[in-house]
Design a binder for these strands. Structure first.
Length: 207
DNA sequence: TCTAAGATGGGT
DNA sequence: CCCATCTTAGAA
């Protein structure tokens, strides 16, 4: 795509696995792309969070099944995009078998493809804040709730392989889920160590 | 029907 | 610290 790296799209089998925390860890270093309105944008995932619909009070699917969360109850390998605070469109990757509502929130990427388009969508060059934080990622990638339920093995939203071996991955509690009480303490947020594109968390490291 | 609250980000 | 902005979920 950029002439340097050969991207290999992840297949269904990557997503249809039972350990969402493990999948989240593995997503660090992979590349997410969108092709919206004929414009391809994307970047390397450097921060994400796992949400387990069965045991995790922070999950939108915990203890309920509604029209919004229905896509999370489908099989893995589809997008779950929801509107947060009436403003921000957040991209999640649905995982696991059907009827198990697991998902991974993509929180930050390093811009790689379609950078000018992302700058335009964000209303200017925000430097490291261009694609840091889930709301920024959704906006830069051109996503809204109409993009929920898209097959990630297709050509509108997809994730491709690629991790640099020397990257050190850290884990910490998730951001903004205090309402989940003790589940807010779960170390299910993964990010690249010392990467400036990672969004500034609200908590200090606990590990 | 009504309403509180939200997996945030940007500005003061 | 404050506020935008609006869908969703759950209550009434």
């Amino acid at each position: 795509m950029n002439g340097i790296t050969e991207y290999v799209k992840l297949s269904r089998s990557f997503y249809v696995r039972s350990n969402v925390v493990e999948i989240a860890e593995e997503l660090i270093g992979k590349y997410v792309f969108t092709n919206i309105d004929g414009r391809v944008t994307g970047g390397r995932i450097v921060e994400c969070e796992a949400y387990n619909g069965r045991i995790d009070r922070a999950s939108h699917a915990f203890g309920r099944r509604t029209p919004r969360t229905e896509v999370m109850y489908g099989k893995g390998g589809f997008s779950y995009v929801y509107l947060c605070y009436g403003i921000h469109n957040m991209l999640n990757v649905v995982t696991n078998e059907a009827e198990v509502a697991d998902a991974v929130l993509i929180r930050s990427i390093v811009p790689v493809e379609g950078i000018e388009t992302m700058i335009e969508r964000r209303g200017g060059d925000k430097k490291y804040k261009l694609t840091a934080g889930p709301g920024s990622v959704g906006k830069a990638l051109g996503l809204n709730t109409s993009h929920s339920g898209i097959d990630l093995t297709g050509d509108r939203i997809w994730i491709a392989n690629g991790r640099r071996n020397h990257v050190q991955i850290e884990r910490d509690r998730r951001v903004g889920v205090d309402y989940a009480e003790e589940d807010a303490l779960l170390p299910w947020r993964f990010f690249e160590k010392d990467n400036p594109w990672v969004s500034v968390g609200k908590q200090k490291a606990i590990i």
